[in-house]
Simulated assay, not measured.
Amino acid sequence: MNITLEPTDDRVASMRRSVLSRIAEAEPAVDTAAAVRPAARSGRRRLGLLGVGVVAIAGVLVVSNLAGAGGRQQSAVAEVLHRSALAAVATSDPVVPPGRFLRVTTTAVTSKTSGDVSYLARAQDDLFVPADRSQDWVWVRGASTPFRTFGPASAAAAAEASPGEAELLRAPAGGFYSRPSDSSEAAFAKLPRDPRALLADIHERTVGQGNSVDEAAFGFIADELTDGLAPADLRAALYEAAALIPGVTIEDGHATLDGSTGVAIGRTDPEGNTRDELIVDPDTGALVGQREVLLRAEVGLPAGTVIGWTSKTTSVVASAPAGGTVNGVFDTRGCTVTGPDEFQC
């Protein structure tokens, strides 16, 4: 269905009022017992480029999808994500002047297992994206250090673990580890902005991943949003696509992650033992972060533990660190590149 709306100030304000009133009517009960975190789904962070938001998409998204949500809980989720989508396209992306860099700082906590015990480790990355995105990007990958332990055996395992290895990478257009960026401007242009078409595209991209097509799609959306580099119109479409995934619920109306608060939108896969959550700020359209909650006790971790989370902040800075190589530690070790993300050491 093609809908064309003129995104006037009055129309945007009217849509905001409509969405806010529906949220108030459909506000679900909040489960505040859940803890906090989301783990990276691969050893490689997805990387991308900022673009220019298209305000006109706000009207299309809100009008075309509000009627499609099924059930009170699904409707409440849709309202929050619609509101986030509307705010995303109404908020300007950071402007990076020539010679400066967009700095994306990502803090991630992940679970580590040693034998039959586990602990949590924390790391921080800084990505520097130049105003001219064909030039060198710089990626400072921090070493992981123990963050939380669970009893004496867990503490001992954390103390005995080898410190994580820090890396400094530099690559034209973000082609780290000898792989073209899969979130480049060209890659973003290939992703549909219509939410249903976008979800179908994501399903094709994630065939065979995860425990189910819905889990894989939710994870793809979470990763794409967490990078902090998708343009505003794509972020809005990703929020709308997430609202179309079955089983997505509101888990916490006031979830706090790394000092910021938002609404936790979660999904539990029947075949898994974790609940994946996106924490969004519907007022700004920003993704606060993602987290992963353990449902049943496992390898020394109690049920309800947030076994991982990721948050990010962005800023514009005057310079990026000097040095770095395309393949980071693989270059340091003298490894041979055998393919994208593949090395013989």
Rank of each mutant, 00 (worst) to 15 (best):
I3W: 10
L5N: 08
D9N: 15
R17L: 13
R17C: 14
E25Y: 12
A33T: 15
A34M: 14
L47G: 09
L50V: 15
A56Y: 08
A58M: 10
S64P: 06
A67D: 13
G68W: 07
A69I: 07
L81V: 08
S84C: 11
A87C: 03
A88L: 00
S92D: 14
P97G: 08
R100G: 03
S111Q: 12
T113Q: 14
S118E: 02
A121T: 05
D126T: 08
W137N: 01
G142V: 01
A143Y: 00
A143L: 00
T145I: 05
P146A: 07
S154T: 04
S154I: 03
D194H: 08
P195D: 05
P195M: 06
A200R: 08
E204T: 15
G219F: 00
G219P: 00
A230P: 09
L234M: 14
I245Y: 09
P246R: 06
G247V: 05
V248E: 01
V248Q: 02
T249L: 07
G253L: 09
G259F: 08
I265W: 02
I265Q: 02
R267N: 00
T268Y: 10
G272M: 11
N273V: 05
R275I: 05
Q290F: 07
L294W: 04
V299R: 08
L301D: 00
P302E: 05
W309S: 03
T310H: 02
S311A: 13
T314P: 01
T314G: 03
T314S: 05
A318L: 11
S319H: 13
P321V: 01
P321Y: 02
P321R: 01
G328W: 04
V329E: 07
V329M: 10
T338H: 07
G339F: 02
D341T: 14
Q344N: 15
